[in-house]
Design a protein around this nucleic acid. Structure first.
Length: 444
RNA sequence: GUGGUCGUAGCUCAGCUGGUAGAGCACCGGGUUGUGGUCCCGGGGGUCGCGGGUUCGAGUCCCGUCGAUCACCCCA
């Protein structure tokens, strides 16, 4: 038996934090459903070859194996825990294509696992809240503009700082590099993505190390520095004098995303031509999200368009998805002390017990309150009333109910204000703001 | 996975060049025959992350390990 220790990368929250998490999940789910996304919950494991088939490096995947498995029997050595929700979804779509209606929009809020080295905001087990839209054969580009709006609404409904979704398009990058005569687009993207960290000089140096000519490096840097809240970036790219059909296509798609966002939520999206992030199955629009003041925790919501993830034989299901890193978001907020719950339990009322022989009467009062939707618990003991009040206070429970003695009526005390009024369990109602713990952001 | 920093009570930390653990807050009890948050008095709690080594003696030095954190890598 080893000592009880936290496990690196496997976060667990305290009761008050869990209340915040639950509230976030409810709100996010409600927003997703407002946009008509259907809920899906897929199994935790996928065949390893499914998980790895799009070039995901194997070291990130946790493998599932029976303890008693015969080392020579490889039958279930080929299962791995999913590292995101998009790959399992793609598999699900292929498996159930005949029973689904397309375009199909679904949300999925589940844990995922990655065998990476943990750090601030980076876990091995964490919750993602994912939305995706897939269609058969072709997927209209307008969905790439819609998804960030859903996420924008979801985040706006949470007590979090203002979100900015940074958008780029793989076609823009790929086309631009091709037009500029660059071979290894992948490597160049990775370098340019680090522009904020290592600066223009650092980027130039790293590009030179990759064997990119100085004139090409200049072009790449110029492209990466372009950033705009509207479609003006199209002209700016044009001034660089690189032409390529894929580039033009990407610019048009990106402009559409930014303009749609501007109409719905001005300032939500920003074209940022340096970002290249996301898993390597993205083929079009890519998204990354920053929350004001929480930039150091990395992207809190990412995604993109994938044309080739779900395909089998002649069937092809291009899709686009975005995923909120709920655990990372919570970890960042908790780390900054930027969000709190008003209490650590759902309880609204504690019914005081004057003496143990009065407990059954207290239980009846509690039952009446509960039947009316008011979360209630009965005091654990018949200690002095001061102690019972303190029991409630410690947990942030707002009300203590005092059963009337010797035929007198019951009273209920708001222990925050000290106000105590006569009340009947069959009629009393707390203000609706007290019915559930309040979750509030405390950032500026 | 590579490298750096850190790890003392529930929390924030002190502990000088090695000599047998401390403060504040929190918690518990009493003052208050029972309605809290102020005040006063008292109390419990640490194998100094864990394991090994050096030493007469280690929280303090060395190695390993686990955990936290930063940079790289990658990403939610």
């Amino acid at each position: 038996m080893s000592k009880i220790m936290p496990l690196s990368g496997f976060p667990e929250w305290l009761p008050a934090q869990r209340i915040v998490e639950q509230r976030f999940l409810e709100r996010i789910q409600r927003t997703f459903e407002l946009y008509g996304f259907a809920s899906l919950d897929t199994r935790a494991v996928e065949p390893l070859d499914q998980l790895l088939r799009k070039g995901e490096t194997s070291k990130e995947v946790y493998v599932l194996r029976r303890l008693q498995a015969d080392p020579n029997d490889a039958s279930d050595a080929s299962l791995g825990l999913h590292f995101d929700l998009t790959v399992p979804f793609a598999r699900f779509v292929l498996e159930n294509a005949g029973k689904l209606h397309f375009p199909f929009r679904r949300y999925q809020i589940q844990k995922v696992w990655r065998g990476e080295r943990p750090a601030a905001g980076r876990y091995r087990e964490f919750i993602q809240a994912d939305i995706d839209i897939v269609d058969r054969d072709t997927l209209p580009a307008h969905y790439e503009a819609e998804l960030p709006l859903v996420i924008g609404d979801a985040l706006a409904g949470l007590p979090v700082p203002k979100a900015t979704i940074l958008v780029n398009n793989r076609k823009v990058l790929q086309g631009f590099y091709t037009g500029a005569g660059i071979e290894d687009a992948e490597a160049v993207m990775r370098v340019l993505d680090k522009l904020d960290k290592i600066g223009p000089a650092g980027v130039t140096a790293e590009l030179a190390a990759l064997g990119v000519a100085e004139s090409q490096a200049k072009l790449c840097l110029a492209l990466a520095e372009i950033s705009a809240h509207d479609a003006s970036f199209v002209d700016e790219v044009g001034k660089l004098g690189v032409s390529d059909p894929l580039l033009e296509e990407g610019l048009a798609e990106l402009a559409a995303v930014v303009e749609a966002a501007n109409e719905h939520s001005p300032g939500l999206c920003r074209a940022e031509l340096k970002i290249a992030r996301g898993l390597d199955y993205y083929t079009g629009t890519v998204y990354e999200t920053q929350l004001a003041g929480l930039e150091r925790y990395g992207s809190l919501c990412s995604g993109g368009r994938y044309d080739n993830l779900a395909e089998s034989g002649n069937d092809r299901f291009p899709g686009v998805g975005l995923s909120i890193g709920v655990s990372r978001l919570l970890g960042a907020l908790f780390g900054e002390n930027a969000v709190t719950a008003s209490r650590s339990v759902p309880t609204v009322v504690v019914v005081a017990v004057a003496a143990e022989e009065d407990r059954r009467a207290a239980d009846r009062i509690a039952a009446t309150l509960r039947s009316r939707g008011i979360a209630t618990e009965v005091s654990p003991n018949a200690a002095k009333f001061g102690k019972q009040i303190r029991f409630a206070e410690r947990r942030g429970i707002p009300y203590v109910w005092f059963p009337g003695q010797d035929g007198a009526g019951d009273t209920v005390k708001d222990i925050r204000s000290g106000d105590q009024v006569e009340a009947a369990a069959g009629q009393w109602n707390p203000p609706s703001s007290d019915l559930h713990p309040a979750v509030e952001g405390t950032f500026n």
